[in-house]
Design a protein around this nucleic acid. Sequence first.
DNA 1: CATGTGTGCTCAATCGATATAGCATGATTG
DNA 2: CAATCATGCTATATCGATTGAGCACACATG
Lengths: 336, 336
Amino acid sequence: MTEDPMSEPASRTSARRTTIYDLAALAGTSASAVSAVLNGTWKKRRISARLAEKILHLAAEQGYSVNLQASVLRREKSNIIGMIMPKYDNRYFGAIAEEFEIRARARGLFPVITCTRRDPDLEFEAAREMVSYQAEHIVATGATDPDRIADFCRAAGVASINLDLPGAAAPSVVSDNFGGSRDLARLMLNRRRGPLLFIGGRPTDHNTAERIRGFRAAHAERGIDLPESAILACGYAAEKAERALAARGGPLPAGLFVNSTITLEGVVRWLRRTAPDSTTEIGAFDWDPFAALLSDVVAMVEQDVTRMLDEVFRLIDAAPDPALRIEVPTILRARP
Amino acid sequence: MTEDPMSEPASRTSARRTTIYDLAALAGTSASAVSAVLNGTWKKRRISARLAEKILHLAAEQGYSVNLQASVLRREKSNIIGMIMPKYDNRYFGAIAEEFEIRARARGLFPVITCTRRDPDLEFEAAREMVSYQAEHIVATGATDPDRIADFCRAAGVASINLDLPGAAAPSVVSDNFGGSRDLARLMLNRRRGPLLFIGGRPTDHNTAERIRGFRAAHAERGIDLPESAILACGYAAEKAERALAARGGPLPAGLFVNSTITLEGVVRWLRRTAPDSTTEIGAFDWDPFAALLSDVVAMVEQDVTRMLDEVFRLIDAAPDPALRIEVPTILRARP
DNA sequence: CATGTGTGCTCAATCGATATAGCATGATTG
DNA sequence: CAATCATGCTATATCGATTGAGCACACATG
C-alpha cells in the first residue's frame, strides 16, 4: 500500500505518531479534508463519500489516532469530567466511582477520577490539575474542604458539584444522614436497651454531625439521656477506633453505632480480640457485603449511590444555584 | 491593581480563561517571558528575579492556571500515565488503584484510571482514548485481552505493562498464583479431609488456570484423586457462584476453595441460606478485612500489591523485553 | 576603540486539529 | 449565454504554551 517502506506502522515503534498531515500526503488531499472525515463532519463539509472512505481506510491502516491535546486546544471543548475521591477502600466509594464512569461515558464524556486520601491540599492540587486539563465539570466527593475547590473552579469557569459531603459554594448531593442514622439507631434501640455508643468520623464533618444528630434524636424519642461519653468521633481510620475503644474503659454498651465501614474494621477487630464473647450488637453506616454477614452486625445503612449519581448528572445538565442541596434517602439493611 | 475593571477575576465566571498573553499584557512584557517564569525555566532563560516576581504575583492574582492541553501539545510530553482497571468493588483492585496513584504522583506523573468492567471492547476503547490523550505509559490491570491493548500501544509508540493478568505482547507483573493457591489448598487439606471444591473464575483466564494447577498440586502431593467435578470455574460474579452451587447438587465438601472475594460473596450468601449449619470450611483468594472475620473462613491469600507496584514502576523505568514476566509471591493469611 | 562577554529580554515558528472563508468546476435556469 | 447554484475541495488563521535564535544594551578587556 505505502510507497515508503520506512513508514510501515508495524516498524514504527518510537517514531513520530501519524498525524492528519501524514494521512493527507498519503491520500493526496488536504489536512482539512482528513480532519473533516475523521471527526465526522465531512457530510456537512461536502467531502465526497469516495474520498471519505479512502481516508478512513488509510487511517485504519496507519493506526492513526487523534491527538486530543491538539483537538481540545482548538475546539476549546474537552469533554473531560473529573471526580475527586477520598479513598478506594470501601464499597461505597467504589460504587460511586464505577457508576460515575458509566454515566459519564454514556454521555460521551471522558471521566477522570483521582484519589486524594482525605488530604485537603492534595484535593486542591488535583482539582487544579483537572482544571489545567480543561475539565468541564468537577465532582468533589467527600472533600475535606469543598468550598476551596468550588471557589477555585468558579474562578476558572468550571462547573463543580459536591457529592457525599456538602459545601456552600457549589450545589451538593448528599445522603439523608440524619434520617438514615435515626432509623438505624431506632432499630438498634428496639432490640437492646440504650444508650448506644457512637463511634467514628470527624466531629467537624457535616455527615458525622448529621449522623450524631440522628443518633441523638432516636435516643431522645425514647427519653434516653445521652451522656457526652456516648459519642466517640475519633476519626474514620480503623486504628483510631481501636485506640479510642481501648482508651475508653468501662463496660461495653449493648449496642455500637459505627459511623463507617472503615471504622467498623477496627471496631470488629478490637471486639474479637478483647471481648470475643461479648453480646454487643453492631449497626453501621455504609454497606459492605461481608460485614453484613458478621454475626454481631444487625443492620447497615446503605447510601443510595444510583440515586445520588442520578442527581449529580441532573445538576450537571441544569447548572443550578450553588446553595442547592439535595438529600437522598438511605436504605436500611437489617439482618433478616 | 488592574486598570481594566472588566478583567477582574472574581467577576469573570464564564468569560475566557486567563492566558500567558493576558498576563504578558498586564505585566508589560512578552508571552515568552511569562511562560518561562511560570514553568520554572526563567533562570535558564535569564529573566530577572524582579520580573519573575511581578509575573508570579499577577498570575496568582488573576487565578491563572496553565492550559496543559496547549503545553502538552507543544512539549510533546504529557506525563500522563493511564491504568485500566476491571472493577472497583474489592480491596485488591482498590489497593492497586490507590498505590498506583501515589507512586505516579511521586514521580510527577498524572495518573488516569478507568474502570472497564471486564469488557474487552471497553478496555480497548479506554486504551485508545488514553493514547489519544498522549499517555506515555499504560498499565492494563486484569485485562481480558491484554495483547490487543499491548499491540495497539506498541504501534502508537506507547509503553504498556500488564498487571495481574499476563500477556505476551508486553511485560507482565503477576502474583505467584500457583504457589499461593497450592499453599492455601495445603493449609485446608491439613485441617480437613479432601478433596476440596474449587469455585469461581474463568477457566480461560491465566490466573484461574494457575490457581487450579496449584489446587491440583496440593491434592496430588497427598495422593488425593481429584474428580473433574471438583472444579467449578463458573465466572467471578457472585450470582454465578450461587447458581453453580445450586445446580451442583450432592453433599457439601469439607472445604471450599473460592477463587476471588467477589465469588466469595455469592458462596457465603448461598451457604447461609441453604446450609446455615454446615461445617464446611472456606479458603479464598484475595483478602478482605470483613471476609477474614467470618467464622467459616479459615484463610485468605493476599496478593502483595506493594511489591507488585514496585515491579510495575521498575519496569516503567527499564523498558524491558515484552516477554518478561515477573511473579510476586502472595501472602497467606490464616485465622490465628 | 574594536572586540568580547554577560544580562535581560523579544520574535516567530511550532505542536496537531479545526473551522471559516473562498476557489475552482460543472450543472441549471431565465 | 450570462447568471446562479451546487459540489467538492483547499488555504489559512487559530487555539495557548514552548523554545531556538537573536537583538539591544552594559560593561570589561587588550
